[in-house]
């Protein structure tokens, strides 16, 4: 079955993941060259619906769409009809009636993008739903790892911080697991979801132990806006125990890379110097790969749509 939507990593097969990454690699090279534009999505209408504030992800999707020649429209949903009491499904049906080809959706509730995808007949791309999934983030992380480590399997990868509230962690855990890596989750018990051990990862509460001999250190943002009270005693205690600094990083492999999905809280989960260290940090490259991965994902979804439409005619 070919992908019609990209709602999460969970439904993907490893070969789907590899296909997206291979195409993204091609777009990454193209983006670095002089000719960045192509016409893969010429004539397509892409609508970015963000029910939750985002600058970085929205910009990345917008640039990706424009580089592929799509007509891109941004809708700040918080300021619009939702305020007037319209439900998610009605908003979706309204937009659907305008015949878009691609909806890029971010929503504060888990499962909301799945629900929306059931109600429209265009491709839907999940740009983050609640704490559930953020598939393009996991794909861009995977591409970044593959480019700097030369492979995406049999690596030791530590994901550190607020696992419970992080869709990035969930998508990464699933993707990296599917690609056969060893994953460690590092963080305080209060920020671990229930029975997370059942997902095939090792859980560490001591960061130095958790970082021992890893190839990749993936830091997560401490989602302060999600904290409805008292998961950690204080920011400074958190930084002391779980903030990434040179000392803690020295337990990882000497060539370990440091990643962060952004935006960073310097001095809360990561030391500023580490974040800026070009020999260790690939944080800027992650942003760069974000555009390439999104171009690849949208390109593949559109091709599959066209193919399905052609087959339907036959």
């Amino acid at each position: 079955m070919q992908l019609q939507h990209l709602l999460g990593i969970e439904p993907l097969h490893p070969h789907n993941i590899t296909a997206i990454l291979d195409l993204a690699d091609h777009y990454a090279d193209q983006n670095r060259s002089g000719v960045r534009k192509s016409d893969a999505l010429a004539g397509c209408t892409q609508i970015n619906m963000f029910f939750e504030n985002s600058t970085r992800t929205q910009a990345s999707f917008e640039i990706a769409g424009k580089r592929l020649g799509a007509d891109v429209m941004n809708m700040a949903m918080q300021a619009s009809s939702i305020k007037k009491g319209e439900t998610l499904i009605d908003t979706a049906l309204t937009l659907n009636a305008m015949h878009p080809d691609l909806l890029v959706v971010r929503h504060p509730h888990s499962g909301a993008v799945d629900l929306l995808a059931q109600k429209v007949n265009c491709a839907v791309l999940n740009a983050g739903d609640g704490r559930h999934e953020h598939p393009t983030q996991a794909l861009l992380d995977a591409l970044t790892i593959r480019r700097s480590k030369g492979r995406l399997h049999r690596l030791n990868i530590a994901i550190c911080g607020d696992i419970a509230h992080s869709r990035v962690a969930r998508s990464n855990l699933i993707l990296l697991g599917k690609m056969e890596n060893r994953i460690r989750l590092v963080g305080p018990e209060t920020l671990m979801p229930a029975e997370i051990g059942a997902f095939g990862a090792e859980v560490f509460h001591d960061m130095e132990e958790g970082l021992k001999d890893v190839d990749v250190v993936m830091m997560l943002r401490l989602q302060r806006e999600r904290m409805d009270g008292g998961f950690i005693p204080s920011e400074r205690e958190y930084y002391h125990r779980y903030g990434l600094n040179a000392e803690k990083l020295s337990h990882a492999k000497p060539d370990a890379i440091v990643m962060h999905p952004g935006p960073m809280n310097r001095g809360v989960e990561i030391d500023g110097e580490i974040a800026d260290d070009l020999n260790r940090s690939v944080i800027q490259e992650q942003v760069e790969m974000g555009v390439s991965v999104r171009m690849a994902a949208m390109d593949i979804l559109m091709r599959n749509r066209r193919q399905a439409a052609t087959e339907a005619k036959l």
Binding site: G111, R131, A194, A198
Partner: peptide, 20 residues
């Protein structure tokens, strides 16, 4: 408070706020 599922593997997979 705020829970819509029972905590455990399923609630974690679907990322639904859960109660023990």
């Amino acid at each position: 408070e705020g829970a819509a599922a029972t905590s455990g593997k399923f609630a974690t997979l679907r990322a639904i706020p859960a109660v023990s």
